[in-house]
């Protein structure tokens, strides 16, 4: 009986390992943001994400040393180990680039999980372009989304409003391969809403997958702070 239990336990354990091959992500980031009116922003720091904990920890180093912890419903801002602010968020952590990449769902940006419906697929100039329609109940609020892939990797996303105008373009470039894990080291965004226009570029370097150190950041206990 003991042997059977042991075999069962090993099988269960082995199955769990294969189910989630990549479970931790960390990298140094740099976010540069510019608005058409000249407003500029620069942020540098480190990001930690554990697939099981489902909390993104942003350790910002510049311009302000502070930590942001994103959970599914709230973002906590900490300075000198104390929570100084918390705010509700509407985008779950599961739709962050880190969760999608670790879960190998970055190719369609998790739109299928969000209830979007695949409408049309077209091939053009080396890109495979898919048109996704929002869930029926949200079609009067959200527009269609165009997702393009190149060599089986997410290339770009174009967000449209309900009138069909482009409101945002995202590009995912310079993919890095780490033991079978693929991640874009540069994400470029352009937003066009009415007269407002902004550009943003995020670069990632020193990416570590399945990090066995820095446990305090992957499971950041901000409640005790």
């Amino acid at each position: 009986m003991r042997k059977i239990s042991l075999i069962f336990l090993i099988l269960l354990f082995a199955n769990n390992i294969s189910a989630q091959e990549f479970y931790r992500f960390s990298a140094e980031y740099s976010v540069k943001y510019k608005e058409k009116n000249g407003t500029e922003m620069l942020k540098l720091g480190k990001v930690f994400y554990d697939f099981k904990q489902k909390q993104i920890v942003i350790k910002n180093g510049f311009p302000v040393k502070e930590i942001f912890v994103y959970t599914d419903t709230t973002v906590y801002q900490l300075r000198n180990d104390r929570v100084v602010n918390k705010e509700k968020i509407i985008a779950p952590v599961e739709f962050s680039i880190f969760h999608l990449a670790l879960n190998e769902q970055l190719r369609n940006y998790g739109l299928d999980k969000a209830g979007y419906i695949l409408d049309t697929v077209k091939r053009d100039k080396g890109l495979i372009i898919a048109l996704w329609k929002p869930p029926v109940n949200f079609q009067n609020i959200f527009g269609n989304v165009l997702v393009s892939t190149k060599e089986k990797q997410l290339f770009g996303i174009v967000f449209l409003n309900t009138k069909g105008d482009i409101v945002s373009k995202h590009f995912f470039r310079n993919y890095q391969q780490i033991n079978g894990f693929s991640f874009p080291t540069e994400v470029v965004r352009m937003n066009y809403i009415d007269d407002f226009e902004s550009y943003e570029t995020t670069t990632y370097k020193k990416i570590i997958i399945n990090d066995t150190e820095n446990n305090e950041y992957y499971n950041y206990d901000f409640h005790k702070k």
């Binding site: 980031y29 976010v31 943001y33 407003t39 500029e40 922003m41 620069l42 942020k43 990001v47 993104i56 942003i58 311009p63 302000v64 942001f68 994103y70 973002v75 801002q77 602010n85 705010e87 509700k88 968020i89 509407i90 985008a91 952590v93 962050s96 680039i97 880190f98 994400v187 965004r189 943003e200 995020t202 990632y204």
Partner: peptide
């Protein structure tokens, strides 16, 4: 030139939107 940088905090690498308490 560093003085001209904006300290707006909502822009982070994972692109998450906010629903803030009134007026923060």
């Amino acid at each position: 030139d560093f003085l001209n940088l904006s300290f707006e905090k909502k822009y982070f690498p994972q692109e998450i939107n906010y629903t803030a308490e009134p007026g923060n």
